[in-house]
């Protein structure tokens, strides 16, 4: 009986914990559907009007386009360079591999404001490059690579390397083995890495805030709107959509990666 109580107690704690984690963020969609101008209780009435207003906002559409462009290019580029790197670290016994891996995970530990100002000064003071969406993209590639690497490495370590040996024994060149065997098998990880890279870049604020010129990305647009109280309902609507979109992509990426990692049959994609 005490065991049951203990079990129930911990389970209750876990449920409360998850509610605590998600509670504040769920206020965004809640108030975005309210007719009131300010996010206050009691709620006044249900409306989709804020969503319609936001969709008609041309500078929002512009920022959305910019964010999509940057995120697509960044995620493709980060994944492309991370595939060979992840292969190298999971297939070869490289001297200094631990140091390389440590160096590559540094962007996760260094505060993004430091990364942002460091990139800002090398671009402006040393290279004389004007700020644009390209510089934002460059900064985002840097922070996406560690995420892409970890997703890809977990997938590559999940399938049997003897398949690759077999392929070579059967006369395939290294390049053929990669195209015909490794890449198709790693595909769930690759797609998952593309999705993760996209989400990281799409949601990133601090680096974009420092490195963007006149063209803004969606998080910067959101931040600029926060100063105007009358823009708040629109911000709530846009924020809710961004949150929902990111959550869907992340769940999709995780499901793909898990399915890859746990599959008993390595050919099953």
């Amino acid at each position: 009986m005490t065991f049951l109580n203990r079990f129930a107690g911990l389970r209750l704690y876990a449920v409360l914990f998850v509610i605590f984690i998600y509670g504040p963020v769920l206020l965004l969609p809640l108030f975005s559907l309210d007719t009131g101008l300010y996010p206050t209780f009691p709620l006044k009435g249900l409306t989709l009007q804020h969503y319609a207003e936001m969709a008609a906002n041309t500078s929002m559409i512009e920022a959305l386009k910019n964010s999509l462009t940057v995120a697509v290019i960044v995620s493709a580029l980060s994944t492309t360079v991370s595939i060979p790197a992840a292969l190298a670290l999971s297939r070869y016994r490289l001297p200094g591999a631990a140091a390389v891996l440590g160096f590559m995970s540094l962007p996760l530990l260094i505060p993004s404001i430091v990364i942002a100002v460091a990139l800002l000064i090398i671009l402006l003071k040393f290279l004389g490059v004007a700020l644009s969406l390209w510089t934002v993209g460059a900064g985002h590639v840097l922070i996406c690579i560690p995420f892409c690497m970890s997703v890809l490495m977990s997938r590559l370590e999940g399938f049997d390397p003897s398949l690759e040996e077999a392929s070579r024994d059967l006369g395939c060149t290294g390049w053929q083995t990669f195209w015909r065997l490794t890449l198709p098998l790693a595909m769930p990880g690759v797609i998952s890495s593309l999705l993760m890279g996209f989400v990281v870049s799409f949601d990133e604020f601090v680096i974009a805030f420092f490195l963007s010129g006149t063209q803004t990305t969606l998080p910067i647009f959101l931040f600029s709107q926060l100063r105007f109280p009358d823009k708040l309902p629109g911000v709530l609507a846009l924020g809710s959509l961004i949150l929902a979109g990111s959550a869907v992509l992340v769940v999709l990426a995780e499901l793909l990666r898990r399915r890859g990692a746990k599959s008993a049959n390595p050919g099953d994609i």
């Binding site: 998850v18 206050t40 949601d203 911000v235 709530l236 990111s246 959550a247 995780e254």
Partner: peptide, 30 residues
């Protein structure tokens, strides 16, 4: 998965949600 989803969603928006909660006319006060 439930615990990792927040990591991938916009930090800006998660913090902003707290601003809505704690503000003078925010969710807690109202």
């Amino acid at each position: 998965l439930l615990l990792t989803i927040p990591f991938w969603t916009s930090y800006l928006l998660r913090v902003f949600a707290w601003k809505i909660m704690l503000g003078y006319t925010g969710a807690i006060n109202s």
